[in-house]
Design a protein around this nucleic acid. Structure first.
Lengths: 253, 253
DNA sequence: GAGTGGTCTAGACCACATA
DNA sequence: ATGTGGTCTAGACCACTCA
């Protein structure tokens, strides 16, 4: 009878915990600071460690925390803006892009890539591996799939693999007239190899950016780039993550 | 001595489980089919339910599965391509956009929004709520923050709130000359209100798209759109998720 | 070797949908 | 009423980092 209806929707403990921790992070901690370990935190809040971990996982997903096995849990800096595309379309490897070619092999593409390349899944393509580092931190790993038909004249290149070959293949690709680009972003989880390169555990959340490059009336190349979802904010457009100050009066010393 | 080094890195059970399930989904299940319940599956694979759930969670994150409390786990259809931006810049609410205005209130924006609006966090702004439905399914919820200075002449509008007011405010905003746009995409987790609108549980993974609209040399409006990360693939560029067929010969029958 | 986060277990109860 | 997924517990052991 007298039960006031305050508990209409009993909030899960981990959700409430997340809110409390989130506010504590704002007010009582600064970037880089180390939190108490999970067992202590769980005891302090009077919950099981698994419940506490559920809250921490969400905060890590949101880029508020960084957890490293054997080390501890630290307060993460704000996500960095990473420019993914500007108004100008350019080939991968164009002057001044943020990627560093690592390797190039010849292999059959995954079926999903073969489909957008409109090629036979059996046909081998060039696969250029590149990585992207920002502020001394690895933020993305990329595979560029290039059909042989897009780089017809590879006669001058003798390196069978390695960064030299990667550079050469991209240079050859750039001889085509780029007619357009097309991008898609979706959530994924890091494969074991990507995870290693991104310094995360396998299964870590990543933002997968798939880019199609059009030339000669067809899809001339496809890139699949895997960004760390915890540390990156992908930016599109000319201002690319840089703060804009239209009003000169606000640019005070 | 005789120990062959096969177990260099003992793969976690849930990871192996995820791989096995993923392959089973490809070969033995079709879209919409219901999987056995978690207790049965766990027993079948000889693991605890929590471990099985860890694998299912990853598969759901990747958009392979859909789980609903009280119902069961089903095989998800491929993610739908959702056009987020095209080469042409347009104001929110422009003719033919995919959003449906729901409401409009006046409130102080969150501090993060106030910062990009370069406004005082205390200043109230118009907040238009919109939702986006594709293939009969809610895919995104959006809040558009519009400073009063961007819609100076609201004299003709008497509706204090509701969809009528939302439409009117957007119409007024569109009188400004749009000079540019700026987008950022990052991973987030659904707030309680968004989760409800997206038919998900709070904390569900979402892709947050923040758009700045520039006019009159400043940021005239900011939109924060929250897309379901499990079902959506965000597309950028003119082809917006639609398959392109450059070669007329392939447009058979 | 001590301390951290990561994995795993075997239970229990709850909220929700459906019949 | 039954069955589903969601939450929670109290342990255990493992992999990793670092002093």
């Amino acid at each position: 009878m007298g039960t006031t209806q305050l508990d209409t929707v009993p909030e899960p403990k981990y959700w409430h915990l997340k809110t409390v921790l989130s506010e504590a992070l704002d007010s009582e901690f600064s970037v880089g600071e180390i939190l108490p370990n999970e067992r202590d935190l769980a005891a302090r809040f009077g919950v099981a460690r698994a419940t506490l971990r559920q809250a921490l996982e969400q905060l890590e997903l949101e880029g508020r925390l960084q957890r490293r096995r054997g080390v501890g849990t630290t307060v993460a800096p704000p996500r960095m803006g990473v420019a993914v595309a500007s108004e100008r379309h350019t080939w991968p490897g164009a002057a001044g892009d943020a990627w560093q070619p690592a390797d190039c092999v010849t292999a059959a593409p995954p079926s999903t890539v073969a489909r957008v390349l409109e090629s036979d899944p059996e046909d081998q393509v060039h696969v250029v591996r590149r990585s992207r580092v920002t502020h001394g931190q690895p933020v993305a790993a990329e595979l560029v799939y290039i059909p042989a038909s897009s780089v017809p004249d590879l006669s001058g290149i003798d390196a069978p693999s390695g960064t030299a070959r990667a550079r050469a293949v991209l240079r050859e690709l750039a001889r085509l007239d780029l007619e357009g680009e097309d991008r898609a972003v979706e959530l994924g989880s890091a494969r074991a190899d990507d995870a290693k390169e991104l310094d995360r555990l396998p299964g870590a959340p990543v933002l997968v950016v798939t880019t199609r490059y059009f030339a000669e009336g067809r899809t001339a190349a496809v890139s699949v780039a895997t960004y760390r979802a915890d540390t990156c904010r992908l930016t599109f457009g000319d201002s690319g993550g840089v703060e804009i100050h239209h009003d000169p009066e606000r640019r005070a010393s």
